Every structure is written in C-alpha cells, then in structure tokens.
Computed example of a mutant assay.
Amino acid sequence: MSHEYKSRLTDYLSSDPTKKTEADNNNGITNFEENYSGVKNLCFVQLDDKCIFLNYNYLVAGEFFPEDNKIVLHFTTHVITLNGQNLESLYQDIFHHLAKIIKASNDRYASIARTNCPIVNGIDISQ
C-alpha cells in the first residue's frame, strides 16, 4: 500500500460520522470538519424546530446586506433569508461551503451570546 493511499485512508477513517458536535458553543452554527470530503448539505433550523437541508451544489447565489444584518441565499428551489447580528463571518463560511447547521436562536439570548460571533435570529424559507 502506498504512503499516499494510507494517508488518504487515514483522513477518511478519522472523520467519524457518529461524532457529535455541539452547535451551542457557536451560537447555533456548526461547521464541517476541516478535512471533510463527503456530500455537503446545509441544514437550517427555525425557532419552532422545523428544519430543511439543501445541498450546496444547488446554491446559485448569496447576498450579504450588512446594513440590514441579512443574508439571502438563492438555491435552485428555495430562497433562504437569514436575519441576525454579526453575520459577515457566517456569510464567508457559507461562501466557502463550511457551514453545516444554522440554527435560529431567540432574540432574548443575544445579550448572553459570545461577542463577535454570528447570531441568527430568524430564518425565512420561501420556494
């Protein structure tokens, strides 16, 4: 077995699909692991725990409106609007296909959330 093959196999096997990541540590936002090479879906969880996932392959365009604290994502079948605070780094994560789960949090928790981290207060889904 070649060294390159062993290295790639080790990378693949070290990515444990059963491993849980805590979204609460990042104000409801979970990113993919650095070396993840599987299918990349983006899951949106609304305040009422209704959720939808969409594949990054169908993300056509994304817009960031810093003055409105809003991100608009245009998928082929849906338009997702994210409202919140400090959303620029989240926009960059989506741009680079790093974000995995985006969970909306209630406005009342914004004061105790980590500073300079993105906080999503609302997720609007339209078709």
Rank of each mutant, 00 (worst) to 15 (best):
R108K: 15
N116C: 07
S126G: 09
I123A: 06
Y91W: 09
H97W: 02
I102A: 03
R114G: 14
F95C: 11
L98R: 14
S126N: 12
R108F: 02
P118T: 03
H96L: 14
K103L: 00
A99S: 11
A113N: 14
H97Q: 14
T115R: 09
L98C: 08
I101E: 11
H97S: 12
D124S: 13
S105M: 09
N121L: 15
N116T: 08
I125F: 00
D93H: 07
L90Y: 08
N121E: 13
L98V: 01
N86E: 05
D93I: 02
F95N: 15
N86T: 03
R108M: 04
D124N: 14
Q85F: 01
D124M: 09
N106L: 01
Q92Y: 02
S111T: 06
G84T: 06
T115S: 06
A99T: 03
A110C: 15
S111Y: 02
C117T: 08
N86G: 11
I101D: 06
I119D: 00
K100S: 12
I101W: 05
L87D: 12
E88Y: 04
D124T: 11
D124V: 06
R114T: 13
N121C: 09
L98H: 09
L90F: 03
A113W: 01
N86H: 13
A99W: 01
A110E: 12
Y109F: 13
G122C: 12
H96F: 12
S105G: 11
A113L: 02
N86Q: 06
P118Q: 03
R108G: 02
P118V: 02
I101C: 05
D124G: 09
N121W: 02
N83F: 05
K103M: 01
Q85V: 05
A104M: 09
S126A: 10
A99V: 00
A99M: 02
C117S: 14
V120L: 07
Q85W: 01
L98S: 11
L90I: 04
I125T: 04
L87R: 07
H96R: 13
Y109L: 13
A110N: 09
D107G: 03
A99F: 00
K100C: 11
I94A: 05
F95R: 14
D124Y: 03
L87I: 05
Q92C: 06
C117L: 15
K100H: 07
V120I: 15
S111H: 08
G84Q: 10
N86P: 05
E88S: 15
N83T: 10
A104H: 10
Y91I: 00
D107H: 07
Q92N: 12
S89N: 10
L90M: 13
Y91G: 07
I123T: 05
